[in-house]
Design a protein around this nucleic acid. Structure first.
Lengths: 190, 190, 190, 190
DNA sequence: GGTTAACCGAGACGGTACGTCCAGTCTTCGT
DNA sequence: ACGAAGACTGGACGTACCGTCTCGGTTAACC
């Protein structure tokens, strides 16, 4: 049996906090492409090696911030009032509220850039917006109570809603505040 | 009438060709994040200044390649056989064929990264996949001949389809080849 | 009278003037190391090729300016009043007057830099300060009328005087206004 | 008392050595004007930043090489045998021996170019040839034992000797091996 | 309670790429 | 036929970060 134990101090919580704080601060302020490890280290008052010791890549830092709710809120839950359309609209508006913040569009695009660059971020992005768990589950509930047909592709519908928002944002047009709402109504109302 | 003409040598077509060729070659081979101006210049046998003279940014190069059809084919037209669902499926499969190529997933993610990074790419991406023009037009045709309800949000439907593909790709799961096809059937068949 | 209407223009005197003017202006303003062909061309309102057509190098331009008296005066003659020491001091003070102008030290060092860089300038520098012709001749006159011994190495004495000034200037010390005058007195007075 | 020490890695002696070695090698091989920071970095197997971190300019590198005796020997001492003229001639011949090496003229002109360009080099050049210290001191000794008059301007005499050599070299004539020797004899023998 | 190994900050290191400037050559158009 | 204008390839500039590697100092678990 191998003794995994070692002597010496343990990972510094303060450093971890400072690093993730600095990362999310700089990510919001400058976006993904201007985010550098050196910048984070300086902002956090930390040596570069302390970052490299615990995170394999810039993306892993972002992913950690993401699941900790430091980049965007984590409570993208979908209520269950019995009215499927209303519940999904509630979720949708909470997602859209990100975009309504100043630089919200840029923030979303930075998240997409990070997700495209780095697998760690990719696998967490739609999940942390509640698409993969909460929304799918609510849609399955809609199937159970007859508000959706049995063959509705729930996972795809969730991705379609998020994807429509992303594609719109990538296109840099002024966002139509009701566009995606129309989409969800069309998708679910029948 | 103002004569904008000036004397002196004219822009070299050979250089333009070589640069865009090199850009698309390296973009395919290495992806967006590993694409460098120096690399392009060397690959194209061109001075860096010649690139900076004509393109303001790495993204503008990508955008030019995109509209020239050097990154992905440009013929994402949507046929009009009278059968709306079949026509949209035809378009969809041509988009999905990009992903079936080796490194197809990575190529799409690189395009998304470029679009997130750079407005020039962003405004051209969905357009050059035929979403904004051809697909929307075909869907409007579907409304005219009664295969879609009059209030169907055609632009949003197009973005939803493309977006679903993108979100799936960002998630790094093995792609379900029929997932988006199910989505389009659900969206259009009623 | 020159007929300006001919088929096939001849070398433009105006261009030559403008180029040498621009060269000396920029040489004075920025020094030798910041002097560029492009800068001269732009300042002169001339194409670069027009410069390269007529001068093989930056140094050749400087040399031309030098012999034209555009960088420093050309009248470093040595009077002949019969008093050798006084005559040489007169010459010396006219050379030192270059250094008393604002940036005079820098100008001399720029000339030295150009002379070190480029043979064309090198062969003209001491000559154009009157060392090789006027001063040597006057010293030979001093031998003839017995104010100098017959074996006095006149060429070397001239170079020693100029060289002492140059070495002092290269050393960046605040210049001792009487230092070289002491030297010439020591050298000649006996 | 303030402890100036900081933690962290210390300046690499190996890098310093390699850089100064490379600098002097390239300076001898190519001269000052063809000497580039990139060339030095590559020759030394060092990153450019390591050079910029420790030296403010190309000239500072040359100056460091100069005081380390990497460009020319550092032992331009002036003996004191009691015979002033012989002692100064000894010094003079050791300076002239630089010029007798292959490319010796070019080496001297490169040193002058560097000294003209950069104050750091300028202040060290005549000093490291022994002019400012050893030679002046010996001349003062000559005054003390009556071989020179009390009012002989020793500093100026030293600069005159070096300067004569420099001016001759700038003039690109084939060097007269006895010219400066004649000068020193004339200057001191009376 | 002393030893000691891993932590920490700081930052030097060899590199790669950035975006700019200029060299020297070549091309086009206008006079 | 010249000359202005300036595009071209190429090379160096000085800067910013990369990811790795020392350092000296600190801290906790083990002996």
């Amino acid at each position: 049996m191998v003794n995994e134990h070692r002597s010496g101090p343990v990972r510094s919580t303060a450093a971890r906090e400072a690093i993730l704080d600095a990362t999310s601060r700089l990510f919001h302020a400058q976006g993904y492409d201007r985010l550098t490890i050196e910048g984070i280290a300086k902002e956090a008052g930390v040596g570069k090696q302390t970052i490299y010791r615990w995170w394999p890549s810039r993306g892993a830092l972002i992913a950690d911030c993401l699941v900790d709710g430091r980049l965007i809120p984590v409570d993208f839950v979908v209520p269950d009032t019995g009215d499927l359309l209303a519940d999904v609209e509630t979720w949708l508006r909470s997602v859209l509220s990100i975009l309504e913040a100043p630089q919200g569009d840029a923030l979303l695009r930075s998240l997409v850039a990070a997700a495209a660059d780095d697998a760690d971020v990719g696998v967490h992005l739609s999940e942390s917006l509640g698409v993969e768990q909460h929304l799918s589950e609510r849609l399955r509930g809609g199937i159970r109570d007859g508000q959706l047909p049995a063959d509705a592709p729930v996972a795809q519908i969730g991705r379609a809603l998020l994807g429509a928002i992303i594609v719109e944002s990538l296109g840099r047009e002024a966002r139509d505040p009701d566009g995606v709402v129309d989409l969800v109504r069309y998708l679910l109302a029948r």
